[in-house]
Each structure stands twice: as C-alpha cells, then as structure tokens.
Design a protein around this nucleic acid. Sequence first.
DNA 1: TTGTATGCGTTATCAC
DNA 2: GTGATAACGCATACAA
Lengths: 338, 338
Amino acid sequence: MSAEPGSRPAPTLEMVAALAGVSRATVSRVVNGAQSVAPHLAESVEEAVRTLNYVPNRAARTLASRRTHTVTLLVPESTSKVFADPFFATVVEGVTRYLNTTEYMLNIVTSSETDPDKTRRYLMGGNVDGVLVVSHHSGDHSWASLTNSLPVVFAGRPLVNADESYFVEVDNEEGAVAATARLVEGGRRHIGTIAGPQDMPPGVDRLAGWRAALAAGGLDDALVEIGDFTVTSGAAAMRRLLERGKPLDGLFVANDQMAAGAYSVIKEKGLRIPEDIAVVGFDDDYFATSVVPLLTTVHHPISALGEKMAEVLVELIEGRPAARVYRLPTSLVVRDSA
Amino acid sequence: MSAEPGSRPAPTLEMVAALAGVSRATVSRVVNGAQSVAPHLAESVEEAVRTLNYVPNRAARTLASRRTHTVTLLVPESTSKVFADPFFATVVEGVTRYLNTTEYMLNIVTSSETDPDKTRRYLMGGNVDGVLVVSHHSGDHSWASLTNSLPVVFAGRPLVNADESYFVEVDNEEGAVAATARLVEGGRRHIGTIAGPQDMPPGVDRLAGWRAALAAGGLDDALVEIGDFTVTSGAAAMRRLLERGKPLDGLFVANDQMAAGAYSVIKEKGLRIPEDIAVVGFDDDYFATSVVPLLTTVHHPISALGEKMAEVLVELIEGRPAARVYRLPTSLVVRDSA
DNA sequence: TTGTATGCGTTATCAC
DNA sequence: GTGATAACGCATACAA
C-alpha cells in the first residue's frame, strides 16, 4: 500500500561517509559546519549528502550532544480555549517567526491541569532546551521554579520577585502616558480612567501611566474606576463614573474590550464620542475597529513580544548573555474617538 | 546562578534499575507497561521511579525504538498569518485535545516557502511518525507524495484522486441541504444562493446541497451567483442577484463572511431580513454573531475536524485500520435571519 | 586536518 | 519472568 512506515530506510551519516570516501567524523563536521575541513573533502561530502538526500537523525543527534534543539511553549491555561484566543495565537506567531530563523523546533504543551507534575517532569527530564511561559495572568509565575533546571522566559513581569526571572513585557506605562497625553493635548481637562485589575502588572502600570500624564499636565486624577478587562465590567465602570456627576470630557480605558463596554453606556446616556467625551483604549485588538467611532488606542505589540521571548530564550540556551528584562515600546494608533 | 543547563543530570533508567535492584530491561518493561513482570518487582521499580523522579529520555527511546511519538501539523501557508486565523487555531485546538489523550507530541511546522524541500526532507528523515496537513485551499494536496513514506491525514477532500489519501472532511452538502430546507420549510419559494469557488470542494458541495434541497422541494434553482468566500465578493454577488429583477425571498450563502457582505447590500436596498429575504449562512464563525439580525447558519465543526484528523493519524501510525474518509456532521444554528 | 573509538539512554533479541 | 548484550545514529574527546 502507500503508507508503509519505514519503506525506504533513511540514509545515515555512515552511508554518506562511505559514498564520500571519508570517515563519519568528517561528515559530522561538514554537516555541523565546522571549518577545519579541507575544501575538497567538504565538497564531496556535500555532494554525497545531496545525492543521498541525507538529513541528520534528530534523536541520535540529541542523544549524543545532549542538546535537543527544542523549546517548549508552555500554556498553563486549560486546553480548550487558549487557541481561540487571539493573544495567544499572536504570541505563537511571533515565536515561530523567530524560531524559523534558527534550528530550534517549537513544541507547544498545555499543562494538563489533571497532571501538572507530568508536565514538570517532562520539562525537567532533559527533553527540551528551554521553556517559554505564556499566561494571561501575567503575574502568575507558578512555573518559576523551572528556572532552577532550565532557561525559562516569561511573558510579562511577575508581581513579585521580578528580579529573579527573565521576562519580556510591553511598556504599559509608556503606552498609557501616550494615550492620556493625546487627551490632554486635545484640550480635555476632566480626564477619567477605567483601570484594569490592580493585582496584574498591566492593570497597575496602565493606571500609573494615566496618573503620570495627568500630573505632567497639572490635572486632577480622581476619576478612577476599576474593571476586570471584560466588556461588561467596562460598561459598569463607565456607569459608576458618570454617576459621580463630575465633569468628564476625556477617558482612558485600560483595554479595548472595556472601552467597548464604556461606549455602549456613553451612547445610552446620549453623549457623543469624541465631542462630549474623547476615548482612548489600549491593545489595538479586534474591538478597536469594530466599534463606532473607530477607537483611538495604544498598539500592543503581541507578535513582537513572542518574537523577543524566543530570541532571549535562544540566547540563554546558547550561553550568551541576555538582559533579565526587555520592555517593548508601544505606539498610539489614532482613529476617530480622540 | 539559576539557569545552569544541566545542573542536576536527569535520572536514567540505569539509576532506577540500581535503586530497585533489578536489571535495566525490567525497568524498561515496567515503564512501558509490559505484563510479564512479577508484581513485587514492578512495585519496587515504580517506587524507585517515584523517588528518583525518573522520566524516560525521549531521544534515547526514539533512537532505540525508531518511533518518535511525534506528529507534525504541517501548515503550507506563509507563516505570518496562519496563527491569527481562527480556522487554523481551532483545528490546532482539536488536534491537541486528542493528542493529549495519547503520548504523542505535536510539532507545528509552517513549511517555509523559501525552502519547501527542507521541510520535506525533515519529514521524510524519520523525525516524525506522521503528518497532518491543514490548508485553506483544501483542494491542495501538493504534499500528497509524503504518503509514500509516512502516514498522512489531510483536512478536507482533494479535488482529484480523492481515493488515494486519508482525509477528514465536513459534510458540506448535508449542511447546505439543511440550511436550504430551513428556507423551504419557512415558506420561501424563490430561493437564491451565493456559492463559493467551484474549484474547491466546499464551494462545490455547498452548491450541490442547495440544488438538492430545492429539487426536493420542487423549486427553481436558477438564482446562483458565485463569490470567493470574502465579504466583498458576497456583497458583489448579492448585487448581481438583485439586479436580475427576479423574485427573491430566501438566500443560502456558502459562508458567513459572504453573508455579511450580502447583508449590507440587502439593507442598502431597503429590504428587511428576514421579512423580505430570509438568509442562512454556513460556518457559524465570528461573523454570524456580529451582524444584525443574528445569522442563522450551519455550524462547521472545525475543532472536531482537528480531533478526528489526529485520531485517524494515530490509528494509522499504530498500524490499526482506518477509513480513508471521515465525513463530519454539521448542525443548523437557528438565530434571527431565517 | 582527519580518523578512531567511546558513549549518549533506550529498546529489543536473545539466552537463561 | 529476568537479565545480559547488541544495536539505534550521531557527536566528540583523543590520537595520529
């Protein structure tokens, strides 16, 4: 039939050596790009490789060199939903983009909540060279202990012990400053914010950025309501903000989903965007372009985050120095809401 | 410091054997669940495994057994966009869901258009046990030749030589029949369709289903326009349909995106959905719930598709029989448009 | 620079 | 049932 596994056995290093008339060691050197090989020998080895269609056996190589050339992308969340999540998918995209420039393979594992210990043992069992940890609770560094036996790079800064692990984060504060500054420069004087959870770094940093920008503009920073990054929490927070009865002509919302929630309440009250209240969001996700008027927001470089994480991990694996923290810049995307 | 790679070497089978006071062979048997081991020995081996926190070395196991326990998900499209694609992401979700019940690892590779040959050699080099091919052009079976050296399962039926490869597809025709039947049963008598490209199986099958349902209802099937599955093509096709000047009170659109396009034209003409024209889509994707009125559509079981593909592949790898074709059932999701 | 020899951690084929 | 022992395909000290 067709799919007889092992129909024609794969060529081995030994076969290449025989055909090229050299030793296996020499073939190994050529294949691994060592310089100490006579040009004419290297030439004939390469020819043999081509005619035999030789490709190194990964398992054998790993066993002999104790380097797997594999990195794991660890997703702590439950399997079912992560892949549908655009954040996660975009991180993966960035990771693979970088990895494709190297010879490392990506191995995605969603740590089964049924048996996290199995995952841990797999990772520490010498089956991978390094680990990338991506979680939505970016404060969650429950896998930090892995660092003792393996290079690990996290997505996002941990809430505590930030100086003990390698991580890449987006400069949330800078983004929030830019967003708020846009409001200030637009002439708004009564600027509120719908902040994110204060037990997550992005929630904290974005609020801090808003405060900093207001302070720079000599404005009052009393109009704060907290949400949990969901659309409905954004709507509820907006309602509370309006009920205060204070003047409000500008609003910075810590993410686009909450901004969408705020939109609905603002419209419901008969207020106009941006005429009555100018709004700036954060993330530049799908919601930013599916609301009317189009949301002015801060672009969150998710793909770049994944790319940088992979880059740092590979540096670590190969023993090159790397900074413990990388903070990625954001950029303001001006649309119609502010 | 912290991330010294190889700080404490992983325990080996040999260490377990020593601790348990048996031979390596016995440990191997216990670890692999062989029955021919005395209970008390198995017991002590398992204890040794626990105390040592032993986990088998994947590379060594692969090298010795010539089975990698790895399957590749091959994505022919260019790296940049696939991950953001909900279809792809959902297939991955289904695949991992099944694989998590086995001991196979998933290895995602996006065949670099720069060097497809490299990918091919990697796959045929004995580095994976099987391949899953996912492409949006489901007719594209350019990787069919892989089947000669490896078990391969495709997503979607190929346009030609459908009896030479293993594939899992969704029952597009059945879905289209159900969608159209809904229209017929709703009393519609002038039912048109916006079909997909006729060089792709889904495009062909959905059109065929529409025809079959109309025939069953004794209705005319002249109102056909072709689109290319994009929103704009849907709008254009709708415009052409309306320009025919024929009566039209029901519409089956071959996917939700084109339905969204049709919506805009229908509304632009001052017609109402579903009062003037009842609409049924196909896919049940994001667009179905982001249009007003909510779209009645056929649910496309993408996650199940991935799950089934993985299941079939594993069957093939382990030498068990599997059907060449699996056709997954769809279901009608009734909302407000029909 | 090139070749020889050994070992990587398992599985598998034998005898026992 | 259990234990030696030989592969598995490659990298790498070491010798030449």
